[in-house]
Amino acid sequence: MNENQNRNDIAVSCTNIRKHYKDVQALKSVSMEVPRGEIFGIIGPDGSGKTSLFRILTTLILADEGTANVDGFDVVKDYEEIRKRVGYMPGRFSLYQDLTVEENLNFFATVFNTTIAENYDLVKDIYAQIEPFKDRRAGKLSGGMKQKLALSCALIHRPSVLFLDEPTTGVDPVSRKEFWGMLKKLKMQGITIIVSTPYMDEASLCDRIALIQNGEFLTIDTPRGIVAGYPNKLLAAEADNMQQLLADLRKNAVSKSCFAFGDKIHISVSDDIESRLIVSGLTEYLVDKGHKNLLIHEIVPEIEDCFMQLSQK
């Protein structure tokens, strides 16, 4: 692949990005490459550096070290070019609350030298849902509607790359699902989407994901690839006294690590021994400890298990 082709196929790339605020190292040597037309998820807990990375890529702040390119342009040198062609939806709702839905969309269309009519086909699916409320002030919309309006405003100039910083935080589960459906449609239109989220269950909806913690990427792969790379066997256990169960499991030498996951405890154990043997061994150990209604069985790991395992290293 020659240099030129590379430039055209890669929508976003960054190499060894570092960023610190006073005494906090927000990003420690982050590198990634996102091909065109991909939904790329950056997944990690609050404070892991997601927003800093987004702000560097959208030219809002400067990295201490490293280079980054968006749509073939350097984020420092060609920031004005990048600003013309990306769409950005910050984590906090950042539209004008005292302007109506329509005025907001109109304003952002004009700022980007376009009109609502020109790109209406792109935002139609999303905007149609809030159009009945177009004369309502943006500040008076519900969380899900605000999010749709913000997405419409970020899309109105038909960006080539869309940056969505935690778009589903604080949005109800139904709207979240709907939202991911919209992203899939946008992807079909050829828009590259970089999306961050603290929800691990949204990871599987991305083409590829980067798991981030404390300013470092733990891994970058497809959701399947990450799950396939899980090195251990995983068991789920439940019993009447969950707190005691967690404590007892942690004391047991067989379990490499145990975490509470909702109403179950996930235990990762060595891949070398047959799972049937481990389950019966653990059951015996726990019954001895006096646990009632014990239930242990092998499960397929999810992204969150992988995240836990990777962040342990």
Binding site: T59, K84, P90, S94, F108, V111, A154
Partner: peptide, 13 residues
């Protein structure tokens, strides 16, 4: 303060 500057900056304004 309201964060709208963040979006305005990421535009050809």
């Amino acid at each position: 303060e309201k964060g709208t500057m963040e979006i305005l900056l990421v535009s050809p304004m």
